[in-house]
Simulated scan of single mutants.
Amino acid sequence: MAAGRVAGYGIATWAGLKEEAFTVRELLALAAEAAGGQHHHRVTVQLPVSLVMMTPIVQALHGRGPLPAATGAGLG
């Protein structure tokens, strides 16, 4: 947070990704648009991981869903 600037931020959602209201790619495009370029500082996507909600993990194990998309976009 040098000079009072945000070093990085993320988004925490499952419903929006699960219901396909948006994709990781669309979230990055919106971040770039809001920031006026690719230096938007979005660095993470947070999803629930539990024994009750296994969908994100199952999707990732099959190479699909938001987790592989986030990784492919360089997000944590």
Rank of each mutant, 00 (worst) to 15 (best):
M1N: 04
A2E: 04
A2P: 07
A2H: 06
A2G: 05
A2N: 08
A3K: 08
G4T: 10
G4Q: 10
G4L: 10
V6S: 02
A7H: 00
A7W: 03
G8T: 04
G8S: 04
G8E: 02
G8A: 03
Y9R: 09
G10S: 10
G10M: 08
G10Q: 05
I11N: 02
A12Q: 14
A12V: 13
T13I: 02
T13L: 06
T13G: 08
T13Y: 02
W14F: 12
W14M: 00
W14R: 08
A15C: 12
A15W: 14
A15M: 13
G16S: 13
G16P: 12
L17V: 00
L17D: 06
L17N: 03
K18I: 08
K18A: 15
E19S: 15
E19K: 15
E20I: 06
E20F: 06
A21G: 03
A21S: 09
F22N: 09
F22I: 14
T23R: 07
T23I: 01
T23Y: 05
T23N: 01
V24N: 01
R25W: 01
R25P: 09
R25Q: 15
E26G: 10
E26A: 15
L28G: 04
L28Q: 11
A29M: 04
A29Y: 02
A29C: 07
A29H: 02
L30C: 13
L30M: 15
L30N: 12
A31P: 05
A32M: 00
E33P: 09
E33W: 13
A34L: 14
A35G: 02
A35L: 03
A35Q: 01
G36D: 07
G36V: 09
G37P: 00
Q38Y: 10
Q38M: 09
Q38P: 15
H39R: 15
H39P: 06
H39V: 11
H40Q: 05
H41V: 13
R42L: 15
R42T: 09
V43M: 13
V43S: 14
T44V: 13
V45Q: 07
Q46L: 11
L47Q: 04
L47R: 06
P48L: 02
P48H: 00
V49A: 11
S50N: 02
L51C: 04
V52M: 12
V52H: 11
V52N: 10
M53P: 03
M53R: 13
M54H: 12
T55I: 04
P56M: 05
I57P: 03
I57N: 04
I57V: 09
V58L: 07
V58T: 07
Q59W: 03
A60T: 00
A60P: 00
L61I: 06
H62K: 13
H62W: 03
H62Q: 14
G63L: 00
R64T: 14
R64K: 14
R64Y: 12
P66M: 05
L67K: 01
L67R: 08
L67C: 07
P68G: 07
P68S: 01
P68N: 06
A69F: 00
A70T: 01
T71S: 12
T71I: 12
T71L: 14
T71F: 11
G72I: 06
G72A: 15
G74L: 06
L75N: 02
L75S: 08
L75D: 05
L75F: 03
G76D: 15
G76K: 11
G76A: 14
